[in-house]
Design a protein around this nucleic acid. Structure first.
Length: 277
DNA sequence: ACGCCCACCTGGAGGC
DNA sequence: TGCCTCCAGGTGGGCG
């Protein structure tokens, strides 16, 4: 599911409702997602105020007023849905609404995740920097310090296809299957190219391609394929702008030759064999 | 240490 | 209509 642009879209949708708000009630409808939910989850969150919502890679971090960090990941099929008090009353819960919480200001948020690959954890303030899920993450691709030289250094010696390397969250954080394919297309790089050969100008172009596609996707509210919707229920529409992803057999937007699909490390890769070298 | 493969889940789409 | 197979925005663990 959700990659960086979708997670950022969710963060931006939740922030106006949650930042500064106090959690009045939390309902945990299932004990475990990808990992066990926090013990005594409700009692640790109820009464706390959300100070700030932050995104790191594909994680959303809700900083609470006691220093706790409420860590959320949407997995493949997770979404956040925001309802006003009245809307919530008129909308029955779905069997996959695993965590439901309310703010004193009258919002209800539902975390719905049919496949349950997502997670919610509570980290103590000190843990937040060192927790194993966050510790090894690579640079944020939209930060100014993510440059061609930085990417090139991370790829040095990597004997894996560049497509697979981009999915490695230690190399760069937040890229998933869609934006790896799209970024490589924009950079004119063949997905099967050995990662270690992406150096110099090639790395510069790849960084530019990734930043460009991520920024445009965020501006469009992310890509709504199967599960992603913005917290207010609006669909993202970046999927209508894909150059290669999910376009097998259709014409390349640049050269009009057929877009191809192959499987790398068990994941579909879409590319144009003429435009990408 | 590194790279590959699988498992973890559910649901939707398409074929017969 | 129904059943069966394949596929899906992720990721961490185990294996060689």
């Amino acid at each position: 599911m959700p990659e960086l642009p979708e997670v950022e879209t969710v963060r931006r949708g939740l922030a106006p409702k949650l930042e500064g708000a106090r959690i009045s009630k939390l309902l945990q409808r299932r004990k475990d997602l990808r990992v066990a939910l926090p013990a005594r989850f409700a009692s640790k969150v109820e009464g706390r105020q959300v100070v700030k919502l932050e995104r790191r890679a594909k994680y959303i971090l809700a900083h609470l007023d006691d220093g706790t960090v409420w860590l959320m990941h949407l997995g493949m099929s997770g979404r956040m849905m925001v309802f006003s008090h009245n809307e919530a009353g008129a909308t029955p819960l779905d069997p996959h609404d695993h965590v439901v919480f309310e703010t004193e200001s009258g919002w209800q948020v539902r975390f719905r995740d049919p496949r349950r690959f997502g997670l919610m954890l509570l980290l103590k303030a000190k843990e937040a920097q060192t927790h194993k899920l966050l510790r090894g993450l690579g640079p944020e691709p939209l930060e100014a310090d993510f440059t061609g030289a930085v990417l090139a250094a991370a790829l040095k010696g990597k004997r894996t296809p560049i497509k697979s390397a981009l999915l490695d969250q230690r190399v760069v954080a937040g890229i998933g299957n869609i934006y790896a394919c799209e970024g490589l297309f924009l950079a004119g790089l063949k997905p099967s190219r050995l990662a270690s050969t992406v150096q110099g100008e090639k790395a510069d172009k790849l960084v530019a391609g990734l930043k460009s596609v991520l920024n445009r996707a965020i501006a469009d509210g992310g890509s709504s394929l199967r599960d992603h919707v913005q917290p207010d229920g609006e669909l993202g529409y970046f999927q209508t702008r894909f150059s290669v992803y999910d376009r097998e057999g259709q014409n390349c937007v640049v050269c009009k030759r057929k877009v191809r699909r192959m499987v790398q490390a068990g994941r579909s890769t879409f590319y144009c064999s003429h435009c990408q070298r």
